[in-house]
Design a protein around this nucleic acid. Structure first.
Lengths: 293, 293
DNA sequence: TAAATAGTGTCTCTAAGACAATATCTC
DNA sequence: GAGATATTGTCTTAGAGACACTATTTA
């Protein structure tokens, strides 16, 4: 068939009589306005809080990395790390590059969250943000925290509903870091996602980053339940109680130990090592089960 | 405090001595290259297939809308409907605008899926695609199908794993429409999402739209289990068997009727109306339960 | 009456939550 | 031994799947 031969040879011609190669060679990009596209990253980790009693286990806290803005707009506010995407890379690659620059950590879990595109979200110009969530193992964080950037800092986050008026919910993100503590207030519809929320009071946060962070948290909580995401927040060897604390910290509620262990059992592999010098019965160390479901 | 007063009055000055207002007035966007950003839409509906027997219920099929390309590149291939985002709108608004233009339907469920950003995904120039999933009630579709665009057509889709080599899975998307039937082959890692898949053989599909469609399907299947998404695919009144068929069609497997009805019960509200003239026992008509969880 | 779907009751099995009982370390 | 956590066993309950049984319509 003549027609099939043409497809095979890629010489289909358009209404101007051009082949695809000819078309592409003559193509000039139109005059559509183009936005800048940046990646913003919600880098989560779970850190130990100060210890109180030599016997008690340390409390854990969900933390994220932010950077203090040294220029306008939002001078002095805290913002998510990020940067512009280059024409030679995917947004994934851009995010990984930024992450490397910002934290020095390369091999971390990275997941695209959502693209925020409100035309006014950056007062300078039209900038869309393709947001990402990164999960970092707490032991690696200890090395990197306050590494070079005097302006980067880890903040504990808590997200809780403050008020409910009919279908509209009012949520508070509370950030507590060494250098600052502040609160961001968001509003959203009951069934809606934080991707569709509205910032009511930025507090000390820059841009629309409150929405991004709240959505990142929502995603993290959701996926925690039916994936093995949590292991990206753990060091190689950990106790089941540590793992349980990480779940509890992220979900914001306590879990029954027996049920937790049953559920998590197929995902972990026990070792012959135990914790020591802890003021109580030693705990077996586990690691992630690679093969098992 | 002087400092707090400055914050309150928004007269913080940057290292050049500018206030935020002064900075923004003098801001000139840098020379970073900018991508075009388009929205692409996976518009799903569930349609009845031809009836065979006056007694039997029609089989259902998951369908999506595609448009035949009339110009290069990918001349003659089928592509997802979509278009460029304008500087005055969000990607959501752009998607809704395109949807309105394409199908004439306004009030439909719309959800952002993923932003695809491979630098080479469009051979013309640097174009990112912020993809969306739309769900349309099948009864509305009947009116719109083949409305004006001779080049728009509904295709039945099926997605199934074809082969598994170690950690790499090979998947086939099979499209069957009135005007054409073809197959797209994708590859992905076992645990990975289709957002990270690779098109191995486009078949008759344009661009990287196979990835987008497969990811849309993955999202739809996932959310079907724990949300009330399915109701967006239903007309106002429906039987529980119809609802069940929609679930089965999307999930690609049969479900036990008794368990399905128990699970779905709190989401629906029975009416006093029944189907008629169906060659078998009439079925009660239900509608979505607005209040109940 | 046959064909076909509609709708419900019950049994089993699994998993989650509640809770108690036991184990074992360090100071 | 006291204090604290680790770990397991058991009971109850909720929900999913299997399956059978009954109900109801039309040609």
């Amino acid at each position: 068939m003549e027609w099939e031969r043409r497809i095979a040879e890629k010489v289909l011609r358009d209404k101007n009589g051009l082949t695809e190669a000819e078309f592409l060679a003559s193509y000039r990009s139109g005059d559509y306005p183009r936005p800048s596209v940046a990646t913003d990253m919600v880098i989560f980790t779970v850190m130990d809080q100060k210890e109180e009693n030599y016997r008690k286990l340390p409390e854990k806290e969900l933390c994220l990395l932010m950077i203090k803005r040294g220029g306008h707009p939002y001078l002095g506010c805290w913002a998510l790390p990020g940067g512009f995407v280059r024409p030679t890379e995917t947004t994934d690659e851009a995010a990984r590059r930024e992450l490397q620059e910002e934290t020095g950590v390369g091999q971390v879990y990275l997941e695209q969250l959502y693209t925020f595109s409100d035309p006014g979200r950056d007062p300078r110009t039209w900038v869309m943000s393709c947001s990402y969530m990164a999960l970092i193992d707490s032991s690696k964080v200890q090395i990197q925290a306050g590494d070079d950037a005097a302006w980067a800092s880890w903040f504990g986050v808590q997200c809780k509903m403050a008020e409910k008026r009919g279908e509209t919910e009012c949520w508070e993100l509370v950030f507590s870091g060494e250098d600052a503590t502040f609160k961001t207030v968001l509003e959203k519809k009951s069934k809606a996602s934080f991707a569709d929320s509205k910032v009511v009071d930025r507090g000390g946060l820059a841009f629309d980053h409150g929405r991004i962070i709240a959505y990142g948290l929502e995603r993290l909580r959701g996926k925690l339940q039916y994936t093995d995401l949590a292991f990206h927040l753990m060091p190689e060897y950990f106790t089941l109680t540590q793992l349980q604390r990480v779940y509890e910290t992220i979900l914001g509620k306590g879990l029954p130990a027996a049920a937790f262990r049953r559920k998590i059992a197929p995902l972990v592999k026990g070792t012959q090592q135990y914790t020591q010098n802890e003021g109580h019965r030693p705990s077996r160390l586990y690691r992630k089960n690679r093969e098992g479901n």
